[in-house]
Design a protein around this nucleic acid. Structure first.
Lengths: 295, 295, 295
DNA sequence: ATAGGTTTTGTCAAGCTTTTGTACAT
DNA sequence: ATGTACAAAAGCTTGACAAAACCTAT
């Protein structure tokens, strides 16, 4: 009705607050303490913010969310208006999906190359490889993916993971013994966990799918493993060897992972439950071992 | 040439002990009696050993195992860390066996590296990898090998083969579609066959273990495979899908391999029987399609 | 390379702790006892850590996991920022450079092994091997690389490429005949091109450096080559045999590659000009012949 | 191998200060 | 709107302690 020439959409503090979700009091505090914003004033003294203030406040909030202190967050928000998120892993995932769905192995390999060249191993594994496998599993349940596609994709990904695994028994870090329960054939998650553990300096011994508990116990003893990790998708397979897991927990530190494991089962058998994805849980596991080694 | 000095992580006696398997007391005794090692000390008096001490202690142990007296062994260990030897494929196989039996992945990788550096891919596969798997199978039947050993060795070898397989879908050669019959989990022979085919210029699409026949037929059709190869160890698994194989043979050239296949079954279902080992049979198969003359 | 300074978000101890999984108390203890970190302080005395502190703490933890004492681990972590446990192609190239520049052949081989385990052959060749050779050429022109270095690096790389080339005459694909013009001694690019062609299913016959045109023509005729590829760095060497190339183009498909070739020359002599790098051009060449449909 | 003493190192507590979101009075 | 106040959360320093690892000597 009246806004004049300087109509550049200047905002009063209430509106800025509404748009950013930051309370007016706090906006004033940030201005006073860190000089985050330097609004014009009306003749009456009201603050008038330019549109850019919204971006700056959002940057501030995003830095706070990253864990920075308010002082630091303000300094960064004032320095750089904003940072565009590097969304490119998503587009590469899209391309990976299309290559694997089309049985195009060389293109899949090349996408994986590019991913590994641009992102950290852990990002590639969690945001692309595991994400793809998850999605494939869901499509399979809905009957939208063929078994052939699943097999093909599995074998390409398994090859890649085993390539990254080369030499994972070497070194002097803690030793993890990895296996799937008897009857369990899905080992890609376990493989991923092993690769990340290795990247964090652990040694890994891999027994893979469908490992009898007896043999596992013996191997754990022979190799004096610091941790034994069992993973799989099937709850039933875990339940079937509940007692053996409990026995094993008496001798070694044992962790259970994958959607077949459960907090309940872990507790009963004295094992550690790893509820999350393989990358995340590998990081957590790597954090559990402090300098002392198993005896 | 000189070691960089600054870069060296010094070990305390406990860690040296863990890495060499020699108890701290004994290490101190060897130092006191024979001057085997001359560690630095921390300000508080703790011993600090350079990495090279590991090699020296291992040399000491190896000389002791040869029957030398401790004093002699120490003198020799102090003089020369160790000595390697030259290798034939047979001796390398021997070393591969010992590494895999001992769950020593890094050593196994290193043996495979040396094999591939000195011999043809096909030689390594037929005279070492397949030979080892064969032998392992026999030991397993006689109850001389544990399941853990078999799993461990399989996973190392599978990783290597899949590494050699990378990019095997690329190119312009004939396309082979590879799979195991439903229920069949042993795919290492099939993998080997695929690697050799690829080395001969073929493209390979790999569906791997336990592939439903229906899905196989569909994939073969979609990809217009020149050959479909089914392989496995179990006769029963083949028999169970005899009819489907016959159907498939109507549409594609089909070959059956592995000890589960038989001339009889192949004949009945109109497929080609590949009685020999994977390397040999891959070569034969590659011979069935003559070099393309592009002119 | 230099850090950008202004752009750095400084972390307080709690956030550093959250990101590394090391408790604040322990971080302070490591600072006090070993000087692991030297954070700035706020005016009020709070510690402010740069992002790099995360890497350093992780290095510390990784050394601890290897069994080093805290004092040693800190010393090493402070010395070397960190060893990125899982390597990118760029960091591996960095290591390859250092190994080759230091005349350290075993380490160079091991780097190449690790590259090939994690990346596609084509990526390794184009992003590492060819990149290194290119860079070496430039350093040589600027007088920054010695002849000895160039010879050493060439011989290591040539050995590796020849290893990959093993058996490349076998199979059923199109046949490429590869040679350098008379007088031309630089054949590493050509060798690389051959390796990639082979990986794509072609058969390769390699005549190597300094090949008389007459010999080449005869071989092409005898072997009924599908393509003849001539490559080299020197323009002069190409010009000198312009007429013979034209003759050859009458009988065979001929391609010219390497910085010595030119579009002009190719056009005059009726050959195909390949302006790009060897990996790229091998792929293009492989694309000129469509996958064989054996049905 | 045991015994007895020392060093190293992760953890914790006490008491105080700084930082920061929110609230309130003018 | 401004300025002040306040309390919770997070941090700082000093000091101490105990378990693990290591030493020497018997």
């Amino acid at each position: 009705m009246k806004s004049m020439g300087a109509q550049e959409g200047l905002l009063r503090i209430g509106e800025l607050s509404r748009r950013t979700g930051v309370k007016p009091d706090l906006l004033r505090a940030w201005e006073r303490r860190y000089g985050l914003l330097e609004p014009q004033r009306t003749s009456g003294g009201f603050r008038l913010y330019p549109q850019a203030a919204v971006a700056r406040v959002e940057a501030m909030r995003s830095h706070l969310a990253e864990g920075l202190s308010a002082a630091q967050a303000a300094r960064m928000a004032a320095a750089a208006p904003a940072e565009p998120a590097m969304a490119s892993i998503a587009s590469l995932l899209e391309e990976l999906r299309s290559a694997l769905d089309g049985f195009d192995e060389p293109r899949a390999q090349s996408v994986l190359d590019r991913m590994l060249a641009s992102f950290t191993l852990e990002t590639v594994l969690s945001d692309a490889v595991i994400a793809y496998l998850h999605e494939l599993g869901e499509r399979w349940e809905r009957g939208e993916a063929s078994v052939a596609q699943e097999h093909f994709a599995s074998s390409v990904i398994r090859g890649r993971l085993l390539g990254l695994a080369r030499g994972w028994g070497a070194g002097s870090g803690p030793l993890a013994l990895l296996a799937c329960p008897p009857g369990e054939e899905h080992d890609l998650g376990l493989l991923t966990l092993g690769v990340v553990l290795h990247a964090r300096g652990w040694r890994v011994a891999y027994l893979g799918p469908d490992t009898p508990m007896e043999t596992l116990a013996q191997a754990a003893k022979n190799m004096r493993a610091d941790w034994v990790v069992l993973a799989g998708l099937s709850t039933k397979r875990f339940r079937a060897v509940e007692n053996e897991i409990a026995d094993l927990s008496g001798e070694h530190r044992v962790a259970l992972a994958g959607s077949g494991a459960s907090a309940d089962l872990a507790q009963k058998s004295g094992a550690l439950f790893l509820p999350g994805g393989p990358v995340e849980e590998a990081k957590r596991l790597a954090g559990t071992i402090q300098p002392q080694r198993a005896h």
